[in-house]
């Protein structure tokens, strides 16, 4: 950016090749995915290494994360759902750490690209469909046939139920992606106001206003980052519940 008053809030989402390999290039997005999983793995392994009966702070955080997700899974999917605890925990940790990484200046936000969140959502969707059919056979299709519906409107209701079911990966991925994308753009736009107002003579006196807003939005973005990871994991465990117990 040669012109200091010109602000490009979209620039932060640009993908750049670090190791160009054509279609399979290692991009900055890949780098941060690796960093995310690396940090999660390293943190969890290091902090639980000692297995102290009285945990130190690091181990306590790991245990709290574990218990938080374990409670969430067993609350929404029951004891049978605990089979999927590693899956939900991995998803939760990945989304959480990726979102929080995005809050560090100059870091790339992996979850601000819909293809990443959509891949995660499709993973959930495929797990639900495959496990549902494997566990219940064709009984899984009861999910689309609500009880107590008269036979003459059943086909219509079934089609609506199927659409509703297929909309899940989309709502799951769009929610996460849109929240993160919109938040980061808002943050950059308001931060950009400070720079552009500073170059406008008397308006420079008003620069504390966008600065205060930027601070507020930053705090809000931390909330959104954690909350969206929570919502993603919660919905995943609810969908898994559908795969285990189809039929309403």
């Amino acid at each position: 950016m040669a012109d200091p008053t010109k602000v490009d809030p979209i620039h932060q989402f640009a993908l750049t090749d670090i190791v160009p390999l054509g279609e399979f290039s290692f991009t900055n997005s890949s780098l941060f995915m690796v960093l995310t999983t690396g940090l999660i793995g390293a943190y969890l392994i290091m902090s639980t290494q000692k297995r102290a009966m009285v945990p130190n702070r690091l181990q306590l955080v790991s245990e709290m994360l574990y218990e938080f997700v374990a409670n969430m899974v067993s609350d929404s999917a029951g004891k049978a759902g605990m089979k999927f605890f590693p899956f939900v925990f991995s998803l939760f940790m990945f989304v959480l750490v990726a979102n929080l990484f995005g809050m560090i200046p100059f870091f790339f936000t992996v979850t601000s690209h819909i293809i990443v969140t959509f891949a995660l959502a499709m993973l959930v969707f495929i797990v639900v469909v495959v496990y549902g059919f494997w566990k219940n056979g064709f009984g899984f299709l009861r999910l689309f046939v609500p009880s107590g519906v008269p036979i003459y409107i059943l086909p219509l209701v079934a089609v609506i139920e199927v659409i509703s079911f297929l909309s899940r990966p989309i709502s799951l991925s769009v929610r996460l992606f849109a929240n993160i994308l919109a938040g980061h753009i808002t943050l950059k736009v308001f931060a950009g106001f400070i720079v552009s107002m500073g170059g406008l003579g008397w308006f420079a006196l008003l620069t504390p206003l966008p600065l205060i807003l930027t601070i507020g939005i930053t705090a809000l973005e931390f909330l959104v980052a954690v909350l969206q990871a929570y919502v993603f994991a919660l919905l995943t465990s609810m969908y898994i519940n559908d795969a285990i117990h189809p039929g309403h």
């Binding site: 909309s167 899940r168 709502s171 769009v174 929610r175 909350l227 969206q228 929570y230």
Partner: peptide
């Protein structure tokens, strides 16, 4: 209150997603 913020977004995206899929 935390989920209150999430609730609105959740309802909105569920609605829009179903229309898009249809």
């Amino acid at each position: 209150t935390m989920t209150g913020w999430g609730k609105g977004l959740r309802l909105g995206s569920e609605f829009v997603a179903a229309i898009l899929v249809g």
